[in-house]
Design a protein around this nucleic acid. Structure first.
Lengths: 153, 153
DNA sequence: GGATGTCGTTGGTGGTCCCAACGGTAGGCG
DNA sequence: CGCCTACCGTTGGGACCACCAACGACATCC
């Protein structure tokens, strides 16, 4: 048998997939707690930002930008609209579309959310030095990348 | 206005919390596809490994080792027991406890799962060089760490 | 003007993580 | 011995994120 029997669970807990799940859960918890003070959650922040970037914009376009499912987008926008942060008006040029636009309150809330999000992310990377944070984020971005870079040569 | 208006969504998508969610989702998808060939999922792998490490062991102890909720542990063990990978017998010494033990099939399956898990993790970190993978995993482990190291001194 | 496809919406699934409560049992202590 | 406290496994929720299928309404391309 040689000795294939180093503790199996410890090996699993050292796997990137396991650590990624743990770190992601921690991040979601931190972000969730932060955004809860505004009564919102992470997707609201992203959608609000996308609307701020792209002026009046259709829901499907928002979905493509943020990567959220159209189904979820409906609920997110319902929340934001009910809170008065976005307006949802029929697009006169294309009656299939809703034109989503940011309100003044929405812009103000977005700034608060951005601040809360930044603070939570600082707490998330609290154990790392600034240089390590930059390095970590750069590597993480490449791991998160869905697309393969194709044949290397 | 000065110009506080760099694209807000791009900033969010560069945040560690966002990247962590994406990378974690990718990892779960890769692991899920790999383990699906055995009809199991990630938690089954971890629990199977914990049982292999700790011989006959109570469910609550498994929960503490793996971090899974007792509620979820019931379902995981039901699956593993139904598949014949573990046995669940009443502990004669403490009638509250179930003694969970690994079967020969369970050990064999654990080896297959370990292999599948390793392959999926290699695919997950496919964009990184070996040195980068080591660096990334080390940093990630510190980010995943729940505990603060207290006052630095 | 008919095929094709997009838009917003509804409905549903699955996985991870977390909490509350319950009957049953063990152990400590008087 | 009897009581209280704590733990065991189990059941029943819930929240959140990710994902898919289908539908009526509408626009567009040929």
């Amino acid at each position: 048998m040689t000795e294939p029997h180093e503790p199996a669970l410890d090996r699993i807990r050292a796997l990137p997939s396991w650590l990624l799940n743990r770190a992601s859960a921690r991040g979601r918890r931190l972000l969730g707690e932060a955004f809860a003070r505004e009564g919102l959650r992470m997707p609201h922040h992203a959608v609000l930002a996308a609307v701020a970037d792209s002026g009046p914009v259709a829901q499907a376009a928002l979905g493509r930008m943020t990567g959220f499912d159209p189904k979820d987008m409906v609920g997110i926008l319902n929340d934001l609209q009910r809170a008065g942060f976005v307006t949802r008006t029929p697009d006169p040029g294309d009656r299939r579309k809703n034109a989503i636009a940011l309100t003044a309150e929405g812009r103000s809330c977005l700034h608060r959310l951005a601040r809360l999000g930044d603070e939570a992310n600082e707490a998330l990377l609290g154990a790392l030095t600034p240089a390590e944070r930059e390095q970590f984020t750069a590597l993480l971005a490449r791991v998160a990348q869905e697309r393969e870079e194709g044949p290397v040569a």
